[in-house]
């Protein structure tokens, strides 16, 4: 019951109030700036981490970031900041 009410409220907010859907709760968001910094909001789990590649599980799938000298600038519960030379970002959607 509750999730449906929530979904309905979310849809109403999106359509009528024109609030961007990413600001409302569970969906994750990724911001990439100048190819050396990626901020991932609402991530679920860190799967692997090395200076060449890291995999992060989000709600809808897995994000794979490849590059050189990658490192985690900071991790807080809502947000993961990756820095380094990013070469490729690959999304694999949950089937």
């Amino acid at each position: 019951m509750k999730p449906t009410v929530r979904k309905w409220a979310q849809r109403m907010a999106e359509e009528w109030l024109e609030v961007p859907s990413t600001t409302l709760g569970a969906s994750s968001r990724m911001v990439i700036s100048s190819m050396n910094r990626a901020v991932i909001e609402n991530f679920h789990e860190l799967l692997t981490f090395s200076s060449e590649q890291m995999r992060i599980r989000v709600k809808d799938g897995i994000i794979t970031i490849s590059g050189h000298g990658l490192f985690i600038r900071s991790v807080v519960p809502e947000e993961l900041v990756v820095e380094g030379a990013i070469i490729q970002i690959h999304f694999s959607v949950n089937s």
Binding site: L46, S51, F71, I72, R73, S74, V75
Partner: peptide
């Protein structure tokens, strides 16, 4: 990287996490 994953899962604030061949620092 069990320790790192566990700490991220436990919502611990970490920063400057860097990995090298055999180790990683945080």
């Amino acid at each position: 990287q069990e320790l790192l994953k566990k700490m991220v899962a436990d919502k611990v604030y970490l920063w400057d996490v860097r990995s090298s061949d055999a180790t990683y620092t945080l």
